[in-house]
Computed example of a mutant assay.
Amino acid sequence: MTARLPLFPLGSVLFPGLVLPLNVFEERYRALFRDLLALPEDAPRRFGVVAIRDGHEVAPAGAEEAAAGYAADLSGALYALGCTADAATVGEREDGGFDVVATGTTRFRLLSVDASGPYLTGEVEEVAEEPGTGSGALAADVARAFRTYQKRLAGARERSLAGSQELPDDPTVLSYLVAAATVAGTPAKQALLEAPDTAARLEEELRLLRREAAVIDKLGALPAVDLTRQVPSPN
């Protein structure tokens, strides 16, 4: 079964269960959130978040020819698997922009893009999450590796971790939390989002966490992005 969603391309990946704060200032996306606010109060305010491939930009508002070309060549601009976001709060500012807090809900596959309106929309189909084989045991290993990883990062910055945060017991929730918090570029995070099941995602995270922790141990250096900030909270 397919559905049509307004699309919000980002230079990062959203995972189910993770909170997404947005500062909306472009007119294209102001129109999107005006339309969401115009929905009945009890209607869900959902939109699709899709990551932009490295080296590409979405067409600017008003560039009709570029937008049409972009829609025709989806594979060159956007990844084909994204995450539905549910806008919990949408606040309009005096300058006409919006402060939005949304939460990722479910993965979807992007089947087509329509750039003919004031903002991008897409036909999507939901992608179910399967547990895979051995996800429970893998989750325990990933939780331990993630704790070690956090300590290595904090030590590399000569910082202390701000308290011990409980990690979720559910393997799928844990897999998305770790995917969001681990230092990695957009292609690597997108690969985690696209994992065929929870077990496969956890296996890849275990390799990633152990490799990066070993690098920090040997070199005393951090990867390009600093994870010593607080870990995102699952919904």
Rank of each mutant, 00 (worst) to 15 (best):
P234L: 11
G76W: 03
Y79S: 03
S112R: 11
L18Y: 01
L10D: 05
F146S: 04
L111F: 08
V142I: 10
R152S: 10
P232S: 13
L192V: 10
L20E: 11
Q165P: 00
L227T: 14
R4G: 00
A43N: 00
D114G: 06
G96R: 02
A200M: 10
V225F: 13
I52S: 01
E204S: 15
L39H: 02
D73T: 07
G11Q: 12
P196M: 11
E57W: 05
R144W: 06
F25H: 12
R210V: 08
V58P: 03
L209I: 09
A61Y: 15
L39W: 07
P223W: 14
T2I: 11
F8A: 05
P118M: 05
G117A: 15
K218H: 05
E41Q: 13
Y119H: 09
E166C: 01
L209N: 02
G122K: 02
A66N: 01
L14F: 13
L219C: 03
R159D: 03
T105P: 00
V215L: 14
E203L: 11
L81Y: 08
A68C: 02
G17A: 08
A59T: 09
L174P: 00
L5E: 06
D169T: 15
R4W: 11
Y149R: 10
T172P: 00
E123H: 01
P131N: 06
A137W: 04
L227H: 07
F98H: 04
A71I: 10
Q190R: 06
L14H: 03
L111T: 09
A128W: 01
E126W: 02
A80R: 14
A3Q: 10
A128D: 10
A179M: 08
D35G: 05
R93W: 07
F146Q: 02
R144N: 05
L120C: 01
E125K: 03
A200G: 06
P168F: 11
D217W: 07
P223M: 13
A137Q: 13
P196H: 05
S233R: 15
V100A: 04
G48W: 09
D114S: 06
R107P: 01
G104N: 05
R201E: 10
A162W: 04
L36C: 12
L78T: 08
P6F: 08
P232E: 14
G91L: 15
L227Q: 09
T133M: 02
S233N: 00
P60F: 13
V13A: 08
T198W: 07
L37E: 11
F33N: 02
E130S: 09
G134M: 10
A3L: 14
L161P: 08
V215W: 07
A139S: 12
A71S: 08
A38V: 07
A179N: 03
L161N: 01
T89N: 01
R45I: 13
A71C: 06
I216E: 09
A195W: 11
